[in-house]
Design a protein around this nucleic acid. Structure first.
Lengths: 116, 116
DNA sequence: GATTAATGCAACTGTTTGGTTGCTCTTCTA
DNA sequence: TAGAAGAGCAACCAAACAGTTGCATTAATC
């Protein structure tokens, strides 16, 4: 079992996490996530207030987060409320778990080899 | 304690994770991470073999990962070996923990409110 | 019914980014 | 010591991206 084969086997799982990490890798978007994880669904206007960017910019960022499956919108009258979708966040976390677990096992194997 | 205040308080911590998530949010880079988490330090040539991109492209990606603190290089003769730095990966995971924990608590509060 | 608040849509702009090519430098090795 | 292998550096390119402005649309409210 070569390292190449091993990583190739786990990669399809990690691959799914790419757009999620990409969506989280932006300060503005991570700030939106931080606002939304407080619980209540917020409108675009509410999410824009307090920032120095335009409402349209916020809308675009919400679209990116939505495409990544991190948020979900609820239409309510003339407002469009956004709320967090925690399941994808969990998946991303598990992806990191996979990597660190494999890393830890590799370190353990190395240690065992050195001691024997 | 308003949601805005709450999120603002946690954001500085999350802010540090932005470059890490951005670094992970690319298929090629995540593949490099997957290769390196197998344990052994690999050279640029080794990491390039099997891909359809140039050695220089791989070098750039490694630089991005390095800037994010996810990998570390060891110079050895004419080779430059790269290995994973798991600590930053753990920090990123904890960042996701912070978000999901706050989200779970919010849901719990909502449930309690509805039941009372 | 007119007004205003919340949003949607489309075009445009500057910057970042993923990738390349060409050349040079260093270090093994036959 | 010549050649080959591994890597560094710099310039360049096209596409993606973050953000904007201007205008249209929908829904509350007076």
């Amino acid at each position: 079992m070569s390292p190449r084969t091993n990583a190739g086997g786990k990669f399809p799982l990690l691959r799914k996490a790419v757009p999620v990490f990409a969506a989280l890798g932006d300060e503005t978007r991570l700030r939106l996530i931080a606002l939304l994880c407080a619980g209540s669904a917020l409108s675009i206007a509410q999410l824009t207030a307090g920032t120095d960017i335009t409402r349209q910019a916020v809308t675009k960022h919400l679209q990116v987060l939505s495409d990544a499956g991190l948020v979900r919108d609820i239409r309510q009258g003339r407002e469009r409320l956004w709320e967090l979708q925690a399941s994808r966040l969990d998946e991303a976390r598990r992806s990191l778990d996979v990597i660190t677990e494999q890393w830890d096992q590799a370190l353990l194997r190395l240690k065992t080899t050195l001691e024997s």
